[in-house]
Amino acid sequence: MARVEINIELCKGCGLCIEACPKGCLKISSGFNRMGEHPAEWGSDEMCTGCGLCAVVCPDCAISIYK
């Protein structure tokens, strides 16, 4: 099992990680960051394999992965 951390102040909510994740672990948050954007949110350590594909597509390098 793996864990993904998203730095919500770097994330701009582009949603590309959601597209990339083969396990459907990511979604857009209903909350805001300081810039008023809805950042991505990770919510399922049961599904997440730590494959890292979300981090590969992230244009803002907002994702860290733990395994």
């Binding site: 701009k12 909510g13 582009c14 954007e37 597509v57 992230c58 244009p59 803002d60």
Partner: peptide
Amino acid sequence: VRTHYCAGCGHGVVHR
């Protein structure tokens, strides 16, 4: 630091 690039801009991926 946070970049000034728009959401989804390719420059960010190339930088990384």
